[in-house]
Write a protein that binds this DNA or RNA. Structure first.
Lengths: 193, 193
DNA sequence: AAATAATCTTGCCATATGACAGTAAATTAT
DNA sequence: ATAATTTACTGTCATATGGCAAGATTATTT
């Protein structure tokens, strides 16, 4: 078990080395295989996962039943459904594995203990939430101000792994367009690349 | 000072009555007047505000310098820029008063004390963040899946005060369209109302 | 009250994206 | 390997929204 992996994720000035050990030992290693569901619509999230390797996709169903991809999780990301986990309510999201992979799981009760017993951990947690909120806001603004083409180009730049491994229709719903349109956009920007 | 106001905002099963008193006394009443800035781009947020009355608008500038309205805050809302306040970094947002009003202010240091000393308060804080994250995600999905017309209709339904008091151009940028388009949409839906 | 400025509406045309259908290509199952 | 299924691309047409500019309306200042 690699301490650098945990250190890069639980990165906060108030988390001491021995705190990190406690935190590490609270996680459990799991393997997931392509197609398996880590979280299912209607259930309550009881854990979250640090992704060591592999690729996951989160999605919801819109009013007419179409899958809308809300997030991708890659190595070093945290796969989590905050709303369900922290409000103790059933989720509307699904998290499914797009590839095989390895993750480190921590469940809510253990998280809760760390949160209330380690000051650095709860500072980290709050900062993490703040960052997520910032990212979410940013993405919202980008949806408003940027064209689908620009958003796709940025995805290529920031997250090439996703573009390479994920079916177009999922990327399209993530970008908020149809797969038809994305197909055309891809054709368009071939010249730029 | 109205305890019901604070109770409705700091609403969590683990917050006891005397906790609430401590929390209440940590806030300071302020008046704000139309046009005043409660937060300015480039500064660090050092406090947040519970809005008792009045109307505020948060906005950022996009790459080409246009104002994008990111949020409105009404009575009983919390006007806060989480990212700057909790990550201790300068903000990119502005919060400006659209009307005169009354708010209760709490600054970061005092918040921090409450957070670490009252378990119920930090549970409330985390749940609040989780809810915000959920709302932000929801809005993102709505931007993806709903038309500008639908989004405007929902705004009318959920927040009529905003539609009545706020200049169209701000509502338009909040919805992610131009004021021209919003003007046409308004004309369109006159029939529906 | 008049003057000025800000805001809102409207017309014209351009463009991005969607809906639907058909085909091609790739993946998966038999 | 073959068949079946899923995924990706393309064509045609429809629609929503944007860009720009000119008026109309409303608000603000003098």
């Amino acid at each position: 078990m690699n301490i650098n992996f945990f250190q890069s994720i639980y990165d906060h000035p108030l988390i001491q080395r021995n705190d990190l050990n406690v935190i590490m030992n609270t996680h459990e290693r799991i393997n997931f295989s392509k197609g398996s569901l880590l979280l299912k619509n209607g259930k309550m999230a009881n854990e979250y996962y640090l992704i060591e390797s592999g690729l996951l996709r989160a999605y919801v169903h819109d009013f007419s039943g179409n899958e809308i991809t809300t997030d991708f999780y890659c190595a070093n990301d945290i796969a989590i459904e905050v709303s369900s986990l922290f409000q103790r309510i059933p989720t509307k999201e699904n998290i499914i594995a797009l590839t095989n992979g390895i993750a480190w799981k921590i469940d809510f009760e253990k998280f809760q203990n760390l949160f209330h017993s380690i000051e650095g951990f709860r500072e980290w947690g709050r900062a993490w939430m703040a960052r997520q909120l910032f990212i979410s806001k940013q993405r919202k603004i980008e949806m408003l101000t940027k064209s689908a083409t620009e958003r796709y180009k940025e995805l290529i730049k920031d997250n090439p792994a996703i573009v390479q491994h994920v079916p177009i229709k999922h990327i399209a719903s993530y970008l908020g367009i149809t797969d038809t349109s994305l197909s055309r956009i891809r054709k368009e920007i071939l010249f730029d690349l």
